[in-house]
Design a protein around this nucleic acid. Structure first.
Lengths: 204, 204
DNA sequence: CCGGTAAATGAATGACTATTCATTATAGAA
DNA sequence: TTCTATAATGAATAGTCATTCATTTACCGG
């Protein structure tokens, strides 16, 4: 029986390299990291990396595949679980923060490298679109039910939500992940829903 | 009289190299750009670059100095001109969008590289803080005057505003600067002030 | 224990490119 | 015109790494 057929050792090593790579990338940035460093961190030879990945870029691409599919499934679930649009919205934000808090290295790499290399654009783009769509659906539902305002520039709203959440995550990453990120969810949702204007003035 | 004493040719070449560099960086990304490309774009020899800049990284650092000081002065002015906090807030956002729209290459480089290299962190950090402080001051003034809600998590508000504005700029950059960015200001300010919740529900 | 296949190794290769510096051009002063 | 100091040049250097591949190791069936 080969290792491939077994399917266990192969997968384990693949994961080990991937986790090692993300750790190294998180510490040094993608461009400043070397294959040798990744290999060392993973406890394999340099050449071994190339049995599992096409090249250095491919490691990042696989990373996005490996991690973000899972996360997006969790996003979907948490949205599905909620009963009304504003609860869906709150769950989505909370889950987003929780998942990034869960894996600090991933958060660093995602935040730092997501808006970079030409190759990755297509994939990151897809993910971003998925997220924006999710926000869009929830907001439209909320509009239909009367929880959210009707006169919203929807595509702007979607960007604004994603941008603000990512900014909060970036700040947390930058601070070294010292405080509890998930607890930002409620105040943030409050801002999204009510804005910063005082109620009398804003409504006018 | 030397060129240095003259002060004109020297500065002109410095600017020429800087603009060329930003153009190249915007097209290829900092890491994928070579000094030779920058030199070619600027119409000088490779070695000439090193008469004006310490090294490749220094070009980016100088860029942040050269561009963002001006922009921040404009931010300050536009805020000073407005009479009340919500007008100050609106002016700030509008000016932010306008200045980035004005120089597409700058926008690309700023958005792509701001959250990267170890060396730049200190400087980008400073600029970010300056911006956050400006937002903070305006919001606090607005709270004192009753235009903005009292119970705001201020440090969160600052991040949320910057994050959302940057997301809107990123989207514009990514789309190739095709549409009018400044016109996003009013809808965006509206979101900041009123949020997305319908007034009756949000107020409850 | 043997033979063969798959997996892993890591030294060697080949590109690439930031940076240097010996040389050349320039431009004002005398 | 000649001299001098400054600016500019770009070929050569030196170092870095991604990637390859000839060799070794591990493993399994028979």
């Amino acid at each position: 029986m080969t290792l491939e057929a077994n399917g266990k050792t192969k997968t384990e090593k693949y994961r080990r390299i991937l986790e090692a790579a993300i750790k190294v990338f998180a510490e040094q940035g993608f461009f400043h990291s070397t294959i040798s460093q990744v290999a060392k961190e993973a406890g394999v030879a340099d050449g071994t990396i190339y049995l599992y990945f096409k090249n250095k870029d491919d490691i990042l691409i696989q990373f996005y595949n490996y991690k973000t599919r899972n996360i997006f499934n969790r996003f979907r679930e948490t949205v599905k679980e909620a009963e009304n649009p504003s609860e869906k919205f709150r769950n989505l934000i909370r889950c987003h923060l929780r998942e990034f808090q869960r894996d600090h290295n991933m958060a660093v790499v995602y935040m730092a490298e997501a808006r970079k290399g030409r190759h990755l654009d297509k994939f990151v783009d897809e993910l971003t679109k998925m997220y924006l769509n999710m926000v869009g659906e929830v907001v439209e539902q909320g509009q239909a039910e009367g929880t959210f305002r009707k006169n919203l520039y929807l595509s702007l709203v979607k960007r604004y939500v994603l941008g603000a959440v990512e900014a909060v995550i970036s700040t947390w990453v930058y601070a070294g992940g010292k405080y509890d990120l998930e607890s930002m969810a409620d105040p943030l949702v409050d801002l999204f829903l009510r804005g910063i204007g005082s109620d009398d003035v804003a409504a006018g």
